[in-house]
Simulated assay, not measured.
Amino acid sequence: MTIYYCPVDGTRSATTALTWCCPVCRGPWDLDFTPARGGGMNALSPRIDSLWRYKDFLPLDSSTISLGEGRTPLVPLTDTVSAKLDYLMPTLSFKDRGAVMLAELARRLGPDRVVADSTGNAGTSVAAYCARAGLPCTVYVPEGTSPKKTEQIQAHGARLVAVPGGREATALAARAAA
């Protein structure tokens, strides 16, 4: 069974609880889960071409949400160094891996809206996956965020809130909204 776990004070809560943080210390939750071990790498070949092919090793076992994230190429650069080409993800960012998990969990919990704070890439990913899941989404960004990033966030249908100040002010505004 997957549960929320606070790494600071050890508080635990069911993942069905609509809490965004630990009620004791107000810190972010971690997920505590025991992955179900599948039949090894050979069991992956017939599976869908997305992050969900690794469902045996993820804290959520299935999803109806995907934009085809994952499976980006690993290109050898030298004998010992390779590059993962995550700019080939649906929103051009590795943040899609986390955003698809967040959107699936939010879809299951059924909140009124998803609130995120970002300086760009995470906001774009969360907006895209919330749109795919049919979830209303509000993304808080610092007022100086790149216009290209804010355009991407809005293109996915998210409500954009520009916050005066920097990253910390944006995080505080999103927390207050949540």
Score class of each variant (00 low, 15 high):
2 T>F: 03
12 R>I: 15
12 R>N: 02
16 T>L: 11
23 P>A: 12
24 V>M: 10
27 G>M: 12
27 G>N: 11
30 D>F: 02
32 D>I: 10
37 R>Q: 15
38 G>V: 05
38 G>N: 10
45 S>E: 15
45 S>Q: 13
46 P>R: 07
55 K>N: 15
56 D>M: 09
57 F>A: 14
60 L>D: 07
60 L>W: 07
63 S>K: 00
69 E>L: 07
70 G>C: 11
72 T>M: 10
73 P>E: 12
75 V>Y: 08
88 L>P: 01
93 S>Q: 01
94 F>Y: 13
96 D>G: 04
102 L>H: 01
104 E>F: 04
105 L>R: 04
105 L>F: 00
106 A>I: 05
110 G>C: 03
110 G>H: 07
110 G>F: 00
116 A>C: 14
125 S>D: 02
129 Y>R: 06
132 R>A: 15
134 G>K: 03
134 G>Q: 02
135 L>E: 01
136 P>G: 08
141 V>P: 02
143 E>W: 02
144 G>T: 11
145 T>G: 08
146 S>N: 11
152 Q>W: 02
152 Q>P: 05
152 Q>G: 07
156 H>T: 06
157 G>Y: 00
161 V>N: 00
164 P>W: 07
164 P>F: 12
168 E>H: 09
175 R>H: 11
176 A>T: 14
177 A>R: 02
178 A>T: 14
